[in-house]
């Protein structure tokens, strides 16, 4: 059995002005090949105007176990949300 082609993650910009979004993954031997395959697999109906491909092995992801240490500090900083402040109706839209 030969080695498998490496895995790539595919990101697509759906329309001008939007950011790229992860759409899925695929196997390819190099970046150019990954772009070609992404075109066939993920944009058969004009789903995008731009494609990014990234070797899956190069992505560093946060661990689900770190959820608390990463996100809990935000819990006690509710003042970061505009709704924390009561602005009298008389002031008008703000």
């Amino acid at each position: 059995m030969t080695k498998e082609w490496p895995l790539w993650e595919v990101f697509i910009r759906g329309q001008h002005g939007l950011s790229h979004r992860h759409v899925g993954s695929l196997h390819a031997t190099d970046a150019a090949h990954a772009i070609q395959n992404a075109r066939d697999v993920y944009t058969r109906r004009k789903e995008g105007v731009s494609i990014w491909v990234v070797p899956a092995a190069d992505i560093t992801a946060s661990s689900p176990d770190d959820k608390e240490s990463l996100y809990d500090p935000a819990d006690d900083k509710v003042y970061r949300h505009p709704t924390f402040f009561d602005i009298p109706d008389d002031v008008g839209a703000m």
Binding site: E4, L26, R44
Partner: peptide, 18 residues
């Protein structure tokens, strides 16, 4: 394409395409 989307989903569970 449908086969490829699904193989990728299966691969995230730790099985290889081959």
């Amino acid at each position: 394409g449908h086969g490829l989307y699904l193989y990728c989903a299966a691969e995230t569970l730790g099985v290889s395409r081959d």
